[in-house]
Nucleic acid binder design. Sequence first.
DNA 1: GCGACAG
DNA 2: ATCTTGTCGC
Length: 225
Amino acid sequence: MTWPTEPAELIARQQELVRTQPELWAPPERFLIGGVWTCFPRGLVGPGSATDRAWTSAVVLDGRQVVAMELVTDHASGPYLPGLLALRLGPLWNDVVRRLHPRPDVLLVDATGRDHPRQAGLALQLGAVLDLPTVGVTHRPLTASGDWPADERGGTSPLTIGTDQVATWLRTRKGTRPLVVHPGWRTDLPMAIRIVSASLAGHRTPEPLREARRLSRRARESENL
DNA sequence: GCGACAG
DNA sequence: ATCTTGTCGC
């Protein structure tokens, strides 16, 4: 499986992907949750390009214990264009997650799923390529819209495209901006909310994503010190 | 035409 | 993603 380098190629891949109907994942009692994150140099403006350096990390957590971590220092694979995030991050995320041992049972990514111009965001595509259930967690929706939930931990409210609910706002902490939780590859809405809620450990952002971000930022900062 | 637009 | 001050809270 390869990653498209041109918008037209990626769009064609997304149009295939949207027709795929994988079997829903059946989470066991206890499972390993992974997270992946990419940092870019400070001061970048605009969509960026393949010349941008990128620090990408992935982790696996068993409860709160980090049982695997990988860091890849490389370059972005392309610019960021709305709806075409895979051009910038697809190959990086794919590579770093494949290095993890043990592999996670489910992976958290900063990307959307069905909330996408072609209903085929990177959370879905990465899961399909890696054959791994995924859940998307973003700061804001891409295409969907919906009002915020009440300011109570655990509060949710629908994010819809037309009449379809494609994601949900989730208030992970009282008094903070809600996150957007996206069902990804082989996950549905209730499952995605359950997985994110179970990995919060008291913070606004799920621990696997916080840990991966820590590693990436630490690597970036350690170069100019 | 104008604005919005995952990271 | 990154750029941004102060501020409230554990």
